[in-house]
Nucleic acid binder design. Structure first.
Lengths: 257, 257
DNA sequence: GCCACGGTTCGGCCGGCGCCGAAGTACCGG
DNA sequence: CCGGTACTTCGGCGCCGGCCGAACCGTGGC
């Protein structure tokens, strides 16, 4: 039995509007969009959840602004990214967490490409420790938080993903996480997300994002360098993780070697 | 707390061998493989879990045997499919469930393509009710079974996916499901799998496969037609679902219209 | 041994698309 | 208004790769 009232499953006949009916789907079109090195590099950069301007994406992908512009408009038409105009800049971001999930699922079955430089290797090791995945915590920190919440019965499988138990809601509220806001969000509340560096599950959805927000705004975690994707635990964060969640620092230390 | 002894998380430092270290990964290469209509059609056909001969795949994709052969060898080199020679035929199948998951994750963000014929539409509606996803139950039946197991606390989030509780093990053993065999399997024991027709979660992994096996071998479910992907619930199956799991027939009936 | 059949390899055709430079458009600051 | 910057559109080049027919290899049936 779950902590929330009513059945965990949805007894309605899966919605009557046409969007939910099974339809053929053009998988090849989307894969073709991702299957171009420059576009894949852009999407990878956007996977951190930050909106980036077209010029930055051009530089990241190593192509001219003209080419980048074409790629971005294709990605937009394909529904993979959204664009928000702001002054002279046009910021791009992934259209939905589902896009991020598809990218990670692809990464999981993609051939490894040997790390080239020492600098690159060091950066990757840092990412393994803590990073954001779209907008929630990933890496060893994300996995540790996820596992602890499950272990303490703060979240339980249910619905389409997880349901928050009453003690779990108290625990997170005590940390200042905006649980009510997450419940009100129109996106999926809480669901598991496969972490491709750890090959383990961490917490995604509105709740995962709310936790990530809180940890960043309190300075418990800080963005690592200018890459924005890596995360570092501060001394205060170490205290909070240990005292409130019982997570020792070893659980999320960077892997050895 | 979970039902099994010891912590639900893995306290080891994520394995010391190089394979688990974070590496750059060539997502574009894999996406490029999938992003070709003929190859995508082949992969889609293989998503049902059946191994298919090269000739059949050529016919399905609508290309000549020569072209199909080239596509298949590329897919093989890319690690997406495996081939097993048998007499004059060479049977192809997806290399791993992860490949299937990536395909489903892509399908979730792919643009819908309107169903063309009435016949096609009817076939799709049947698939919505019950189907296999790689080797486990999917569709409305898969979702109903998954939700019921969660609702009855037979499975709980933990580890990398789900852990089976003691009452849950009794429940499934009572149905004749080979729980011990599933535990012994080297693959992931039980994990959620996103169903792209239902947009809901169902049960994958060794346990999901064991349940599917049992239901098919007892004749509670039968393959629908020659497509092998669709499933139909028999009268006996209806009884078992209602009596042992408390799932009424409405939960998995084909959607209206 | 011969043929039939499934599958692969090879050669050559051709369309699509990724690329850039240059020109065009929108927005901002002075 | 004018110049600079950010971005898009256009035209044209070149190559990758998807396609097929034909030839080639291995298996199985007779």
């Amino acid at each position: 039995m779950t902590a929330s009232p009513g059945p965990a499953y949805d007894t309605r006949p899966v919605a009557a509007d046409g969007a939910e009916r099974p339809v053929e789907v053009d998988t090849a079109a989307v894969a073709r969009l991702i299957g171009e090195p420059a576009r894949a590099a852009m999407l990878d950069a956007l996977l951190a959840g930050r909106a980036l301007a077209a010029g930055e994406l051009a530089r990241i992908a190593g192509v001219s602004p003209a080419t980048a512009s074409e790629h971005l408009s294709r990605l937009r038409e394909g529904g993979l990214i959204e664009v928000v105009a702001q002054g002279r800049h046009r910021y791009h971001r992934l259209a939905s967490p589902d896009v991020g999930h598809a990218l990670e699922a692809l990464a999981l079955i993609s051939p490894p490409r040997p790390v080239r430089t020492l600098r690159q290797s060091r950066a990757n090791r840092a990412l393994a420790s803590g990073r954001t995945c779209y907008d929630h915590l990933a890496g060893r920190i994300g996995v540790a938080v996820h596992d602890t919440l499950v272990e303490r019965d703060a979240i339980r499988a249910g619905g389409d993903g997880y349901l928050l138990t009453d003690p779990g809601a108290d625990l997170l509220a005590g940390l200042g996480v905006d649980v009510a806001g997450a419940r009100g969000a129109r996106r999926s509340f809480a669901r598991p997300c496969l972490d491709f560096t750890e090959r383990r599950t961490h917490l995604a959805g509105a709740l995962g994002a709310a936790i990530c927000d809180r940890f960043l705004s309190q300075g418990w975690l800080v963005r690592r360098g200018t890459g924005q994707r890596g995360l570092r635990v501060t001394d205060g964060g170490r205290r909070v993780l240990a005292d409130s969640l019982g997570i020792p620092a070893e659980r999320y230390a960077a892997p050895a070697e």
